[in-house]
């Protein structure tokens, strides 16, 4: 007992259907453009050879903190790493100085903050500012991997950044090095965990699983670099160990092992060259490996 079609009602629905199809049809063009440009930019990033070293200085230091270190690195490995400096203001403004040299795939990018004060509250803010700067350089230099170096509180900012802000699946952090970073602030006794360390441990699941991590401590005597207790640097293992791919602790002693001298310490410059920098391009490598048994 089929009823006769009710044409006016159907006509209204068919108009809605036509509008819907028209809507879909109009979206085909923009969709095509979006996916083409999206895939193109993904391909660009995927094929990119760029692999910067991004450094964060400690508290009270500026974006110029690593000038000497970069000079020493450039001198030691005869490669002119560009030095790009970024300052993030308290109003989220980002200022970039320095430029990428042509054919340089491993620039050093230093991120400093207008508010560079100590304290957990400031570290949280600085981590957010760093995330803004990171987003900016990631868009500008189109890299798909990078290396992270943080001196003193810079390592803490990095840790907070990795746990709370870094969630990109198109960019990986290959290696992380923190130098004299006080994971438990000035507290030498590990049974007294600071709020920051407790938080770091709480969210450690978010740390990048594929990264190799080096925590470098300096000591002038048996238990401190003059400012940061060695046990506080060591507390980093409760955060990173078991979360990242490899976790290595290194203790540097001797000349220039005082906390503020660490970035200029010859030993640490060598560590950075060996562990953090990429190996030289393969055309040189072939010549080298032909003559050595390495």
């Amino acid at each position: 007992m089929m009823l006769k079609p009710n044409w006016p009602r159907r006509r209204r629905s068919l108009i809605v259907l036509l509008l819907g199809l028209l809507f879909l049809g109009l979206l085909v063009g923009p969709s095509y453009q979006w996916t083409q440009s999206n895939v193109k930019s993904m391909t660009g990033r995927h094929d990119s050879q760029m692999s910067p070293i991004i450094m964060i200085p400690g508290s009270s230091a500026t974006q110029n903190r690593f000038d000497t270190l970069v000079k020493q690195l450039n001198k030691a490995d005869h490669r002119q790493h560009s030095l790009i400096k970024i300052t993030v203001g308290t109003d989220d403004q980002i200022k970039i100085t320095g430029a990428l040299r042509p054919r340089d795939n491993e620039p050093v990018i230093v991120v400093g903050f207008q508010n560079n004060h100590d304290g957990y509250g400031n570290i949280k803010k600085q981590a957010r500012w760093f995330s803004l700067a990171f987003k900016k350089v990631a868009a500008k230099y189109q890299f798909n991997n990078f290396k992270a170096i943080g001196h003193s509180n810079g390592g803490l900012i990095y840790t907070y950044f990795f746990e709370h802000y870094f969630n990109r699946d198109d960019i990986t952090v290959k290696r992380i090095m923190t130098i004299g970073s006080p994971y438990n602030f000035s507290e030498a006794n590990l049974s007294h965990k600071t709020q920051m360390l407790a938080d770091f441990i709480k969210y450690r699941d978010n740390l990048p699983k594929s990264a190799t991590m080096y925590s470098v401590a300096g000591t002038e005597n048996y238990d401190s670099d003059g400012l940061v207790p060695a046990r506080s640097v060591e507390a980093g293992k409760y955060v990173y160990q078991g979360q990242v791919k490899h976790f290595t602790e290194i203790t540097v002693t001797g000349n220039d092992a005082q906390h503020s001298d660490l970035p200029q310490n010859q030993q640490i410059v060598t560590l950075i060259r060996t562990y953090m920098l990429d190996k030289k391009p393969s055309r040189n490598k072939r010549l080298v490996t032909a003559n050595t048994t390495e």
Partner: peptide, 25 residues
């Protein structure tokens, strides 16, 4: 929804289907 548009005679079906088109898209 499209099946209802082209072949249904039921008023309620049409009303529900019209309201559901945008979410369904």
């Amino acid at each position: 929804i499209i099946a209802i548009y082209i072949a249904s005679n039921n008023h309620n079906y049409h009303v529900v289907a019209r309201w559901s088109l945008l979410p369904a898209l």
